[in-house]
């Protein structure tokens, strides 16, 4: 298995773990008050912002750790640049990821139209962000293994 394949797998697992652990941590903190109180909006706002920040930091740390482990276990250096194949796969991953996020975004807006509670819209929005992240990693893994 090459560096890029391993990196896609690590990225996929870390995305699932980060989202899962963060959701489990935030779930009990859901405000008890009115369903659409200021506190509820604050909760969802902080959920998204902190998740974004935590994801970025965790991905950077995991990426550094992965590179160290990769160097030690394989005696190979990680590629320092992205070549034409990497860029092509990156574009395909971004396309699929973006497509799924847009679908999720539209579904979230649709939930407001059919009078669903506000938290349904936020959950769909956050889940679509997570699914699009996972899709990006899966697409990369698929194309690195099966070709373009």
């Amino acid at each position: 298995m090459t560096y890029q394949e391993k990196k896609s797998i690590v990225s996929l697992i870390s995305a699932i773990l980060i989202f899962g652990m963060y959701s489990l941590y935030m779930y009990p903190q859901y405000p008890k008050g009115g369903v659409e109180s200021i506190e509820t909006f604050r909760y969802w706002g902080s959920f998204v912002l902190i998740l974004t920040l935590v994801s970025i930091i965790a991905h950077i740390i995991i990426s550094i750790m992965f590179n160290i482990v990769f160097r030690i276990t394989t005696n190979e250096k990680e590629p320092k640049f992205a070549d034409e194949l990497d860029k092509l796969i990156e574009l395909k991953a971004f396309r699929n990821s973006f497509f799924l996020f847009i679908i999720g975004f539209l579904l979230a807006m649709g939930s407001l139209i059919i009078y669903q509670p506000l938290h349904v819209m936020f959950i769909i929005l956050i889940l679509s962000g997570f699914i699009s992240d996972v899709t990006g990693s899966v697409t990369k893994l698929y194309h690195y293994r099966r070709g373009v």
Partner: peptide, 9 residues
């Protein structure tokens, strides 16, 4: 000027 992964592919 590519990565080894590209030669493998």
């Amino acid at each position: 000027g590519v990565t080894r992964q590209t030669i493998v592919a």
